[in-house]
């Protein structure tokens, strides 16, 4: 464990807590993409298949349970909570995410560390996480008003992967055997997607204008 990875995990945790806070405090999920939340639930479930077989540390196990639990709770809330579900932008959240699922799965069948069920699903979850934010970015662009909690959610989500890139650089420099190419390349693609969002988010913040993401 290094400071970059700890900072990344904490930032990731904050992004989930911000989202839970927004939904519980405002009893609304306007501006939040259910599709991105469902993709994240799939990411965590397929990535943590080793939850009960490999014990890394108490921290690792607790964080896995928190991420799986919170992502499923958010999806449940947005789908079934009688008050929250009414504020879901159903007609705006129309990203065809089956494409993301299909491409990630095919890529995982081709590119993985070992051809075992657990490793293929692990690679699938890494590729899927890189693109899981797309429905949310499209929804932000369409809904125009960057509800500040939704914007902050995306901000922390992007910052967490940026910290992980520093972590991979640190591990590459300090460990003789670096085998995290799948995570590293996928993480770079993911952060590049956020960098784009951050640029337009910063511009809109500076001009105090509405967020205008390019079509």
């Amino acid at each position: 464990m290094n400071i970059f990875r700890l900072a990344g995990d904490m930032t990731h945790l904050i992004s989930v807590l911000v989202l839970l806070l927004k939904i519980y405090a405002t009893k609304s999920c306007s501006g939040i993409s259910l599709k991105t939340q469902e993709l994240y639930a799939i990411v965590f479930v397929t990535r943590y298949l080793d939850l009960f077989t490999d014990f890394i540390s108490l921290y690792n196990t607790v964080m896995k349970l928190v991420f799986i639990g919170s992502s499923l709770a958010i999806v449940w809330c947005m789908r079934y909570h009688r008050v929250v579900r009414r504020s879901y932008d159903r007609e705006l959240d129309t990203f065809r995410y089956w494409i993301l699922l299909g491409v990630s799965f095919i890529l995982a069948l081709v590119l993985h560390e070992k051809f075992t069920l657990q490793e293929v699903f692990w690679a699938f979850s890494i590729y899927l996480e890189a693109v899981a934010i797309l429905p949310q970015l499209v929804l932000l662009q369409r809904s125009g008003n960057v509800d500040n909690l939704a914007g902050q959610y995306v901000f922390f989500l992007g910052a967490y992967r940026a910290f992980y890139i520093l972590n991979w650089i640190y591990r590459y420099l300090t460990e003789q055997r670096f085998t995290r190419w799948i995570s590293c390349v996928s993480g770079l693609v993911q952060t590049a997607l956020y960098a784009d969002f951050f640029y337009y988010y910063f511009i809109s913040w500076k001009n105090n204008a509405k967020l205008q993401l390019p079509a």
């Binding site: 990875r5 995990d9 080793d50 490999d54 690792n60 991420f67 992980y164 085998t179 995290r180 995570s183």
Partner: peptide
């Protein structure tokens, strides 16, 4: 070794 194969990152 075992620990190198398992994914210790979240």
């Amino acid at each position: 070794s075992k620990d190198e194969d398992t994914h210790d990152e979240l």
